[in-house]
Amino acid sequence: MATDTLAPDTASTPAHTKPARIGLVPTLHHSLALAGRGATKFLRSPIQLVDVVLTPIISLLMFVYLFGKAISGGDPDAYLQWVVPGVMVMTVFQASIGIGVALTTDAATGIFDRFRSMPIARSAPLIGAVLADFIRYAVCLGTLIVLALVMGYRPDTTVPAALAALGLLIAFAMSFSWISVYLGMLVKTPGSVQGLMTILVLPLTFASSVFVKPEGMPGWLQAWSDVNPVSLMADTTRGLLGDGAVASPLTGSLAWMAGMVVVFLPLAMRAYRKNNG
């Protein structure tokens, strides 16, 4: 290293014929460094923190005490056991749509220009943003679990199974957040992203096994609920937390997650490159 702070690195690079590429390992390294930035920003923003703490609290209290009795036909305790895994899926799923909204504003600032003028993977700022949301989902799920336990929720599970459930929930949210990233890169205004994502999230969360058992639904709705990724993930979580089969809904959930990443990550990258040369 040069001794003077401002002196440029003048070591000559030989003229290569093959263009330089950023490999997979450096891409991951850059993405993680940027995820650290995102997580720090989140932890310093009290409003965002309040949002991911309050939303699960309100959802769980509302569904158990307001609708629980009516839906369950008089057994709130049994309903609590049923609905907690579902609300876990719903809240991380809803939290995952925030990313596109945040990126529309972040990508327009000079800092993204700086990242793109550096020799790092072009995808790193987007992947970093998706990974940074780990902390949001963790806070969200942590709040939910503490409240559920206080309310009397008693999962019949083991520590590894419970950790697997939490890991899968976060992976689920991250996979689906690529839709939001894509829309953020496509429409570029925070309000439109929010609106489009709400249209998408409502049928997915309510026409699912989150709140009611699909057996009571009309045939067509039941057919939809059976393939709905939110239902599949809710059933997977229930299974891992001690209530039902795991294998079949897990396979379905993983297929959805893979599908989301395979389709929407490249689309988001393409839209990002198109916006920014």
Partner: peptide, 15 residues
């Protein structure tokens, strides 16, 4: 990528 290894950019808006 090699160009980016050589350059530094200070934009009009603080980045």
């Amino acid at each position: 990528v090699r160009v980016r290894q050589l350059i530094g950019l200070t934009g009009q808006y603080a980045s």
